[in-house]
C-alpha cells in the first residue's frame, strides 16, 4: 500500500483499513464486524475514532451524490466505524458473546445502501 493513496488528503492513517472496512452495503459492514478479530476492530476503532469528526466535516462539504471515489471510500470507512464503535466501545469483551445473537439479525435495507 506504500505510496498508493485511495483516501482524501489528511486521512492516510486510515489507508491500511480500506481493503477490509471500505464496504458498500450495511449488511456487509455488520458481517465484517462479526467476522473480524478483536485486534482488527480495536486497531480500526482507535485509528479512526479521532478522525471521524474531520472526516464527516470534509464529506459534509458537498452533496453525497457528488462524492468522488476517494471520498466515497472515506464515507464507507465512517459507516463501518459506526458498527465497529459499538463492538469496541459498548460491548468490549462481551462482543464475542454478543455476536452469537447478532448473526441472526439480518439487515435487509439501510439508508446508506446504494439503490
Amino acid at each position: 500500500m506504500m505510496g498508493k493513496t485511495t483516501l482524501p488528503e489528511g486521512f492516510s492513517e486510515l489507508e491500511r483499513f480500506v481493503p477490509d472496512w471500505a464496504v458498500t452495503h450495511s449488511a456487509d459492514r455488520a458481517a465484517r464486524r462479526l467476522d473480524s478479530t478483536s485486534e482488527e476492530r480495536e486497531a480500526f476503532f482507535y485509528a479512526a475514532n479521532d478522525l471521524a469528526a474531520p472526516a464527516l466535516a470534509l464529506l459534509d462539504s458537498k452533496p453525497l451524490a457528488e462524492l468522488d471515489e476517494a471520498e466515497t471510500r472515506l464515507m464507507q470507512l465512517m459507516l463501518s466505524l459506526a458498527h465497529v464503535a459499538l463492538a469496541v466501545e459498548i460491548q468490549g469483551d462481551d462482543e464475542s458473546r454478543h455476536a452469537v445473537g447478532a448473526r441472526h439479525m439480518t439487515i435487509t435495507r439501510a439508508s446508506a445502501d446504494p439503490r
Binding site: 450495511s26 472526516a55 464527516l56 464529506l59 465512517m78 459507516l79 459506526a82 447478532a102 439508508s111 446508506a112
Partner: peptide
C-alpha cells in the same frame, strides 16, 4: 449529508445490537 448518513447507520446498528441480545 454524510453526517446524517453516518447517524442513521449508527442508530440502526445500536437498535440492532439491543434486539440481538434478546433472541436467545
Amino acid at each position: 449529508n454524510a453526517s446524517q448518513r453516518f447517524a442513521r447507520e449508527y442508530q440502526m446498528a445500536t437498535a440492532r445490537d439491543v434486539h440481538a441480545e434478546d433472541r436467545e
